[in-house]
Amino acid sequence: MEYLETKGRIFDIQRYSIHDGTGIRTIVFLKGCVLRCRWCCNPESQEYAIQTMMVQGKPKIIGRDVTVREVMETVEKDRPYYRRSGGGLTLSGGESLCQPLFARDLLHAAKAIGIPTALESMACAKYEVIESILPYLDQYLMDIKHMNPQKHKEFTGRSNELMLENARKVAASGMTELIIRVPVIPTFNDTPEEIRDIARFADKLPGVRRIHLLPYHRLGQDKYDGLGREYLMKDILPPANEHMDMLKRVVQENSKLICQIGG
């Protein structure tokens, strides 16, 4: 049970999360991300370093180092809820794959005591890293943000080739339920054509049945001020319900995928 002693860095644990994966879940947010998406609603997740963020006028330390054992103490508290709802542990971030051993051992610890697992990630890591966690992963909620490498790079800081390649490999492995998630961001990827291309790509991945369209929201905006950073998307409004419904129809017309709006 060495895996219980593995250390890592998190910035939050959120219980009773009901819109991310199946059932009632506990989300552990790992610190550090490889991308720098302009719309990111968790900007405090991006740096691996421990930071200070102003929250309602008071400084708050973001990030703490913990062992798998410590995290699991909290995760286990909601076991009755997982059992009744089919929920469990979800790793999120940041990009959990930036802390591969810690991520793997958290998932391992959960599976070892019968708690279902899920991972929210954009698959931005070497495939060997992903491969090492797959045996402990029930659901992979994989972000695919754009099919065009240049545009992807412009808005997130990195091109998308590695991630698309990983998506194919994860799907081919058949070791986990792969679900594709698309954050729908006005001015970035909210045209019918852009969504259509992602849907067509996802549809070709073996075993993939579901796609989630997550409408952009501004709830993370205050945190940019708190970090002393500028929010580049200030003037962008969340997409209207009708627009989201239209994109959902586009997905349905261009793929056999089951499409839902929101997680």
Binding site: H19, L214, R218, G220, G262
Partner: peptide, 22 residues
């Protein structure tokens, strides 16, 4: 009091006035 949106939950009271209004 928690407000829940897909992929995100926030404590209502920690949001700024304009987002609360939203």
């Amino acid at each position: 009091l928690v407000v829940r949106v897909a992929g995100y939950s926030a404590l209502f009271t920690t949001l700024s006035k304009s987002l609360q209004d939203d």
